[in-house]
Amino acid sequence: MPTVTTSMISELREKTGAGLLDVKKALDEAQGNPEEAITILRKKLGSKIDKLASRATKEGLVHSYIHVGGKVGVLVEINCETDFVAKTDDFKAFCQDVCLQIAAASPSYVRREEVPEADLAKERDIAAAQMAGKPPAAVQKIVEGKLEKYYSQVCLLEQPFVKNPDKMIKDILSENVGKLGENMVIRRFTRYQLGA
């Protein structure tokens, strides 16, 4: 039976908007299969899951941040469902935290689905070449581990939060979705660095 990881739980929470315990139980019951877990959640929680995940996020903010000294600047678009939530201090604080993360950790993409297949193939080739001579089963596991590490470097949602490295940005996003009661999406960002 595959181990249910915190990243699996976070991803499923982000997709469904379901509570932490509900997601963990569903993943355990589905033996780590996310599609099956979604089906289980839909059966248990009914239309609540469908409604939250499908709710449009057309409001929000474009937030800016200039790092001390003016050498790094960030623009990020974070969407939510209502203008009311977009104006709250909690939402603005989350936007600021995301900007700080981008300034400090310099991600290239918001989510892993945005990473070009050519980049992933290159990373797989590099990792496999480093493992030359090892058994194929071990090489496959090591390559997958190195890809996960790569995602945590280049994908904003996969990065450890600079203010609390025990949590990833997607965990902070899920917490804010729960706290504010609305679907939220980090849509896109641009990071400017002087001379880069």
Rank of each mutant, 00 (worst) to 15 (best):
E29F: 13
N164L: 04
P165L: 00
D83M: 05
A129Y: 12
N183F: 07
Q96K: 15
I186F: 01
G60M: 02
T57R: 10
D166R: 11
Q159E: 05
P2T: 14
S54E: 09
M131H: 15
D97R: 12
E59G: 13
K15N: 05
Q130Y: 15
T190M: 12
F91A: 03
I169M: 08
V4A: 08
P165E: 04
A37L: 07
G73A: 15
D83K: 03
P34Y: 06
I126P: 01
K141I: 03
G70N: 13
V72C: 12
G46R: 03
A128G: 12
D22P: 10
D90Y: 08
R191Y: 07
R42H: 08
Q101N: 09
I66W: 00
A103T: 02
V110C: 07
G60Y: 00
K146G: 02
Y109N: 11
L147H: 11
L100A: 02
V162E: 04
K141L: 10
A132K: 15
M184N: 07
A30L: 09
I186E: 03
D166Y: 01
K48L: 04
P135G: 14
Y192F: 15
V162M: 04
V74W: 01
D125L: 12
R13G: 11
M131A: 15
S106I: 01
K87R: 15
L100D: 02
Q101F: 02
A86T: 11
L27I: 09
R111L: 09
V72Y: 00
G69Y: 02
V143P: 03
I169R: 01
M184H: 09
T190Y: 02
F161G: 01
V62C: 11
G60T: 02
V85A: 07
A30D: 04
E113P: 10
S152N: 13
L12Y: 03
D90M: 09
E117T: 12
R191H: 09
E148K: 09
A53N: 01
P135F: 06
D166C: 02
I172W: 08
E144I: 01
G73W: 07
R55V: 06
K149L: 08
I66Y: 00
R191L: 03
A129I: 08
G195M: 04
H63M: 03
Y109R: 11
V23I: 03
V139M: 13
A196L: 03
Y192C: 06
A138E: 15
Q96C: 00
I49Q: 05
E175V: 01
L194K: 05
G32V: 01
L41Y: 10
P107W: 08
G181W: 10
R112F: 07
S10Q: 11
Q153R: 12
A138T: 14
K87L: 13
I9H: 08
E158V: 06
A127W: 04
Q140D: 12
V62G: 05
L12C: 03
L157I: 10
Y192D: 04
V4I: 14
V110Y: 02
V139H: 12
